[in-house]
Design a protein around this nucleic acid. Structure first.
Length: 457
DNA sequence: AGCCATGCACCG
DNA sequence: CGGTGCATGGCT
């Protein structure tokens, strides 16, 4: 079939228009407006990953401007670089690093409006009303992917390892990184580590979704019980052999903790949304390769006093051989949106009403009210399946996730608790996590200013 | 006007 | 009686 052959031939050509070389093993680059990743040849992908794509391929193109603050030259003219700068109210641009710095230093800073956000967003997520949900992807989910260098490039090892909060440090480009790679592994291997427990329980104020490979799930739709990795015996638990991990937590918490714990890092760049890569190597108890590689993205919490976030988890978990794995090295968890559970959401009906704009922006497009099943990984890597559907509502739609009751029960979530959705990249799998309402409210009391200073998206 | 929490009728 | 689908009303 000539068309198919043509498509195949096309697929084997580097997506970079300045390259167009034939390639055998395409690598994912930035996410295109279609949702697909640009397929790049190895050199182009490397340039992209290293943040040198524009300076390599676009040096002769128009659109280069200088950061008003640091003077760094930023390309402002392509999809690869659009997330690297913000338009200043006073004119000119500012690189994201400087923006973040000023964001932190301002008493009540305003995060740049996503005028520079994904052009493909159905509607500006910035328009999301201040309700009990919020979008947490700063510039949409894409920049997290499109700026691997920006978010992962400068990794400075912290010496803080005393506790969970100090195991995380704010790094350049708003990175948060475990103190060292062993610490990173300890998140997964050492279930007796209180810090891990605190992270997952939220007692540190961190809302975590921890995704690892080979999770252990017991249960089904009607009777789900999650294998609590933090109470299990790691030596007998093969689920910990694979330790690709994604971790999600609330940035406001981490920022505060870091600020309190380490004044030296207080001026480091950070943002409402943060991403970190944890690369580590560990050994499982049976000697299997357990190379760990994880990336952490902070979940931004909208600070209107109503907006809360939490990672929600699962629903049905069929069989263990279907359990999710995170095979991809350098997985990134992109925070998408969050919602406080209403009484209805947490009720017996088992339906979670989704914010329409978030549903349309971040979840698959559905044309029929029946919707489609949505696989979601929870904090422990368990796979759940929710039915993502909608109801006609006046001339609009009302999006819901059905079948969330087992998940909520497993996580002991109730009305007022917060559910957060993220996406694991590059696989695109949905990840869900949670935070208890008590944690949130207490944080609001402790850090009202900071929380309120976070922007809406 | 649109969104969403919740109520409620219908159906099995 | 519980689940499903839709309607309604409050809120922004």
């Amino acid at each position: 079939m000539p068309t198919k052959a043509l498509m195949e031939a096309e697929l084997k050509v580097c997506f970079n228009s300045k390259c167009r070389k034939a390639m055998e093993q395409p690598k994912n680059g930035w996410r295109c407006r279609s949702g697909q990743f640009a397929q790049l040849c190895h050199p182009c992908a490397s340039a992209y990953v290293e943040g040198k794509f524009c300076e390599t391929f676009h040096s002769n193109l128009p659109g280069w401007r200088f950061c008003e603050t640091c003077g760094k030259q930023i390309h402002c003219g392509c999809i690869v670089s659009f997330h690297l700068f913000v338009l200043l109210d006073t004119g000119g641009i500012e690189c994201l690093l400087c923006t973040r710095k000023s964001f932190i230093l301002q008493p009540n800073p305003a995060w740049p409006q996503p005028s520079l956000c994904l052009p493909s967003h159905p509607e500006g997520i910035k328009d999301l009303p201040a309700k009990n949900y919020s979008s947490v992807a700063c510039s949409g989910p894409v920049p997290w992917l499109q700026a691997p260098k920006l978010f992962n490039g400068s990794s400075i090892m912290s010496e803080r390892q005393a506790n969970a909060s100090s195991e995380i440090d704010v790094l350049d480009s708003s990175h948060i990184r475990l103190a060292d790679q062993r610490s990173a592994c300890s998140l997964n291997f050492e279930r007796n580590d209180n810090s891990v427990e605190r992270l997952l329980s939220g007692s540190t104020g961190l809302s975590c979704g921890l995704v690892k490979g080979n999770p252990v799930v017991h249960g089904d739709h009607n009777n789900s019980s999650i294998h609590d990795s933090h109470h299990s015996n790691s030596k007998s638990d093969p689920s910990f052999q694979n330790t690709d991990v994604a971790l999600v937590y609330s940035s406001y918490t981490s920022v505060n903790k870091i600020d309190n714990a380490n004044n030296n890092t207080a001026t480091t760049r950070r943002s409402p949304t943060m991403s970190t890569t944890f690369n580590g190597n560990g050994s499982s108890h049976n000697g299997l390769d357990t190379s760990t590689n994880l990336k952490v993205c902070c979940v931004n919490v909208k600070g209107d006093g109503q907006g809360r976030s939490q990672l929600l988890t699962q629903y049905s978990s069929p069989t263990t051989d279907q359990l999710p794995r995170i095979p991809e090295v350098n997985c990134v968890l992109t925070p998408l949106f969050e919602k406080t559970l209403s009484a209805s959401d947490a009720g017996k009906i088992g339906r979670l009403v989704l914010p329409k704009k978030c549903a349309e922006a971040y979840l698959p497009q559905i044309s029929h009210s029946e919707g489609l099943p949505l696989e979601v990984l929870d904090a422990k890597g368990n796979k759940w399946v929710f039915q993502f559907r909608f109801w006609p509502n006046n001339n609009s739609r009302m999006y819901v996730l059905e079948g969330i009751t087992p998940c909520l029960q497993a996580l002991q979530l109730h009305a007022g608790d917060i559910v957060t959705f993220g996406r694991l990249e590059p696989e695109g799998k949905l990840v869900v996590g949670c935070r208890k309402a008590s944690i949130s409210s207490s944080l609001d009391q402790v850090y009202p200013r900071l929380i309120c200073s976070y922007p809406e998206f």
